[in-house]
Computed example of a mutant assay.
Amino acid sequence: MTNSVEDQYVNLLARSIPAATIKRNEELFLKFLDWFPNPLAVKQMSRAQRSQVLEWGPEMRALIAGIELGKLVGKSHPEICGHAYSSVTLGQQMIDYFAGDEQESVVIACTDVHNDVIDYKTVFKGGQSECLLYPDQIFAYALRQSATGIVMVHNHPSGDVKPSEQDLRFAKRLERGSRILGLQMLDFLIVGQEQYFSWRESQLK
């Protein structure tokens, strides 16, 4: 039987502060568990709390460093440059790219004449349910990369990949602007936790 998240948390914490060896470490383990009874509490640890925990003693430095390393790993995104573009391939890659993100973001992928991704950039970050978009900045970025095509990728942290009316209006607006500038808008993807929506694929159905 798979251990629950809470069990895994306690086990990992015990290994980070070896409670079975030194009485002081056992006290630190119990104190930390009292302050942060679950992984979410650790994730929401404030700077003030972090400073207080470090004041408990040098034993806590490695634990805090491990927590910070875990946060950094969680925020890291996989490389997507150099892969031949297709909605299926890029859609799956971007699901992994946005995994764990709690804010709505927009990534623009620039492609060359062979539809290979030559560069990409997160151009906007919003809140949990809103992301303000400005086409001029998207086009300026694409032109600086000497791109021939662009793919706009927008994540929905809720997991629901159904495009809103605002999403669809913006996709059409982006396509019109791309045509004027001589760029090809290859696709507009909305990415959830396990699936994606392709504007281009939806037009072919």
Rank of each mutant, 00 (worst) to 15 (best):
F29M: 07
A140N: 10
G182E: 07
D187C: 07
L186F: 08
E194A: 12
Q93H: 14
A147H: 02
A140F: 05
L33I: 06
D187E: 11
E6N: 11
D167F: 04
E165T: 10
V107Q: 07
V161N: 04
L133H: 03
G66D: 14
D116H: 14
Q103Y: 11
E59W: 08
C110N: 03
A48H: 10
A147N: 02
L63G: 03
A99T: 05
I180S: 02
F98A: 00
A99N: 05
T148V: 10
E59M: 08
D112W: 06
Q103I: 04
Q166W: 08
G100E: 10
A20L: 12
I22V: 15
T122L: 12
F29G: 00
I150T: 02
Y196D: 03
F32H: 08
R61A: 14
D101K: 09
G177E: 01
N11S: 11
P39R: 03
W199L: 00
E27Y: 00
F98E: 01
A19G: 03
L28Y: 08
Q52G: 09
E6Y: 10
E55T: 09
G159A: 04
L143F: 06
S198I: 06
V191T: 10
P135E: 09
P78G: 07
Q92I: 05
S146I: 08
K172H: 02
A140Y: 06
N25V: 01
Q93P: 04
Y9K: 07
Y97K: 02
I22K: 14
N25H: 15
G82I: 09
Q128V: 11
V88Y: 12
V191G: 00
I190N: 01
Q8E: 14
V151Q: 00
D119N: 15
L143R: 05
F36P: 02
L132F: 13
K75Q: 15
R176P: 01
E194V: 08
A99M: 11
V113F: 13
